[in-house]
């Protein structure tokens, strides 16, 4: 946030939003801690926060956490790149060129109400339980919000810019490339951000199906051995990673739409 640039760290972290936010989070952890320490609670099923921290240290020390995080990240990045680029190309064409819309809109609208996870059984039957099937699930999950947003963005291009470009001598193709696409970028970004989070959701589900590695595998595996502490570590890392990916997408989006004076908060 540029307005904070000149302020000291102390001032920045003493804002009510930060203080109350931290307290609120601390209260949740406190309640959990109290429950974990109550007599009669099995520490193997409800590990205390220090036990969770220890599990985290162990997972880092053995390298398991890193291996699993990298495996998950790789899948989500590959799936995201394929799903998002496919969605942006098809969505942009469907939203701009009339006949492309006639061809693509029924397909997009038919796919729209189906959750990506519903394809899991089909994908397993068709592709098996290897790496490709996990990536296909992520691609499907990323594709849907991206294509819907991309198409909406192209539908909302202001006529005034199109007219202006035409009177300046721009060809149809140039209007598409230099007017429609850039003016729809805020929509593309919104789609990509949603895509990142839905892709990440699908990742965990995809890894629950017989994956040899990954964060989804890690929590599933730990659950089967009653290693609740490891499961909780995995859940926390998934949360942090998801937030991180969203931040990356959000910052990239803001950099690309710095020309826009519309506020694009989530």
């Amino acid at each position: 946030m540029p307005s904070d640039a000149g302020r000291s760290v102390i001032v920045r972290f003493c804002r009510p939003a930060v203080i109350v936010g931290v307290l609120s989070l601390a209260a949740v952890i406190g309640v959990y801690w109290y429950m974990a320490l109550r007599p009669g609670t099995n520490p193997a099923l409800v590990p205390s926060p220090p036990a969770i921290l220890k599990a985290l240290r162990d997972e880092i020390a053995t390298g398991d956490l890193l291996v699993n995080t990298v495996a998950s990240l790789k899948r989500v990045v590959i799936g995201f790149c394929i799903g998002a680029s496919l969605a942006l190309v098809l969505g942009a064409l469907a939203g701009w060129f009339r006949y492309a819309g006639y061809v693509l809109n029924p397909i997009i609208d038919a796919l729209r109400p189906i959750p990506a996870l519903a394809y899991i059984p089909l994908v397993i039957v068709w592709v098996g339980i290897g790496e490709p099937s996990r990536i296909i699930i992520i691609v499907l999950a990323v594709f849907k919000p991206c294509v819907v947003n991309a198409r909406a963005g192209m539908n909302e291009v202001a006529q005034i810019y199109v007219d202006a470009a035409r009177t300046l001598g721009a060809s149809r193709w140039r209007v598409f490339a230099t007017v429609a696409l850039p003016s729809a970028v805020p929509y593309f970004i919104a789609g990509l951000r949603t895509g990142v989070s839905t892709g990440f959701l699908a990742l965990v589900a995809a890894e629950l199906i017989a994956a040899p590695s990954g964060l989804g595998f890690m929590i599933q595996n730990a659950g089967q051995y009653f290693r609740t502490d490891v499961t909780i570590v995995g859940i926390i890392v998934i949360g942090l990673l998801g937030a991180l990916l969203d931040q990356v997408a959000s910052r990239a989006g803001r950099a690309l739409t710095s020309w826009s004076d519309v506020r694009r908060e989530p």
Binding site: G169, P182, S260
Partner: peptide
């Protein structure tokens, strides 16, 4: 050439790129 009533300057281009748009087209 046409000058519109509404704000028709492309907001995603700098001033000079707006001015260069027609010639580039």
């Amino acid at each position: 050439g046409f000058v519109f009533q509404q704000d028709a300057v492309f907001p995603w281009l700098t001033v000079e790129k707006n001015v260069a748009y027609g010639p580039k087209s």
